[in-house]
Structure formats: structure tokens, C-alpha cells
Amino acid sequence: MLLRQEIPADREAIHAVHLAAFVKLSVPVVEAKLVDELRDDGDLIAGLSIVAERDGEVVGHVCCSPGWIGEDGKSAVGLGPLGVLPEYHASGIGSALVHAVVGAADALGYGAVVLLGDPRYYSRFGFVLAEQHGITPPVAEWAQHFQVRTLRAHDPGLQGTFRYSPAFDRL
């Protein structure tokens, strides 16, 4: 398996990965649309849009977009969506993508990665409920699934409500 930065030729394959990964969870598949809109808005962070490739085929994708904590905190990114083709679930691809994007975010100097997801899955990567760091979700009902992974550049004084890139508000 090869993990690499997304290139323009990957666009259709990435869309297909998210359609296949999430079709059982929601129709229409908002995750596929979200990635397209983040890209169209210029909010996919180039070094944090990573594909997993196996035998020349894109089989997984993860991305991050700019996020804000509090009124003017700009050192965080929102992770998601993360998608893997169903036939590759439980093969380690999702874990590899999360490790890669968290490591890249740290290397790029971001202070935190924030996501909405299952704590049983994401805790293995060092994510904790965001409220432990004084970070609240944009929708209060998300609190039990709203998580953060602090990185080396994290400022513990940066607290408040997390805001995702505008494409998330259009879902």
C-alpha cells in the first residue's frame, strides 16, 4: 500500500471511495459531496488530503480542512471525511490514513486535529473528547462524539467553540 498526497487525477476515485464507504449510512452520501465542496472552496489542505493506493487503485482517502477554535484561533484543522472502500475495511488502511494525516498536520505546525466520530475507534490515535481541552462542538448534541488530538504546537489556552470550514455548514 502506498500513502500519498492527493493529485488532481484522483478526484473521481476519491468521490467513488466516499460514495462506496458511506452509502449504507446515508442517502444521499454527504461525505462524497463534502469532499468535492471542500476542494471547490479551496479548503482541502493540500498536504492533508491523502489517498491510500493499492495496486494502482485508490482504495482510501482522508482529508483535513481549516478550522477555528474560539473567536480567532486558527491553529486547528477538522479531520474528515475518512473513507475506505468496503472490501478493504478492517485491513489497516483507515488506521494508516489517520496516522499519516495526524503526523502531517503536526509536521505542518497545526496545534490540533478535531473530528466528529466514534471514540472507540479514534481513541487509539490519541483522540479524546474535546471538552477535556475546553473545546466545544458547533452543535451541542455532538459532544459525546466530538474529539480532539492535540499536537506539538497546541496552545492549551485556545478554548471555545470549534468552527469547521463553510462547506460543513452547507450539508
Score class of each variant (00 low, 15 high):
R39A: 15
A130M: 01
S165T: 11
I135K: 00
A13D: 05
L44D: 04
P86K: 00
T136E: 10
G70I: 01
R120I: 07
Y110C: 10
L115Y: 03
G92K: 07
L151P: 09
G103K: 00
A52H: 04
D36F: 02
D41M: 01
H145S: 07
V98K: 03
E6W: 05
A76P: 02
I14A: 02
V27Q: 11
A16S: 11
H15Q: 14
L25R: 07
V62W: 13
V98Y: 11
P86D: 01
R120E: 10
V51A: 13
E53H: 00
H61A: 11
L25S: 04
L85Q: 10
K33M: 12
D169L: 13
A107H: 08
I7M: 12
H61Y: 09
D169I: 05
G78P: 01
A96R: 15
A52W: 03
A105E: 08
F127S: 13
C63I: 14
H89L: 08
E57F: 10
H15F: 15
D41L: 01
F127P: 10
I93V: 15
C64N: 01
R163T: 15
L34A: 09
G83S: 07
E57G: 04
D169E: 12
L108H: 10
G80A: 15
T136P: 08
A21V: 10
P119E: 04
H99N: 14
G111P: 04
L2H: 03
V35I: 12
V35D: 00
P81L: 11
Y122N: 12
L82W: 03
V102G: 01
G92P: 05
H89W: 11
A16D: 12
L158E: 11
F22M: 06
Y110K: 08
A90C: 07
H145C: 05
I93N: 11
H89C: 09
D36H: 05
S165N: 10
L129Y: 03
A143T: 08
R149A: 15
I93E: 15
F162A: 03
F22Y: 11
G83K: 00
V113K: 14
S123R: 12
I135F: 06
D41H: 04
A143W: 03
V77Q: 00
R163L: 14
D72H: 12
G109S: 10
A13P: 11
G80P: 09
I135G: 07
I45R: 02
H145E: 06
D55I: 10
D41R: 00
S165D: 08
L25Q: 14
V29H: 07
S123F: 04
Y88W: 13
V101P: 08
F146V: 05
E37H: 06
L129G: 15
I14G: 03
D169Q: 09
G56W: 09
S165E: 06
G60L: 01
F168R: 02
A20I: 09
L108A: 14
G56C: 09
G78R: 00
V23I: 13
L158D: 06
D41W: 00
G47P: 05
W142P: 13
D118L: 06
G126S: 07
I14T: 02
D155V: 00
K24I: 01
E87M: 08
I69K: 01
A167S: 15
P66G: 09
P66L: 04
L44P: 01
E141N: 08
Y88I: 10
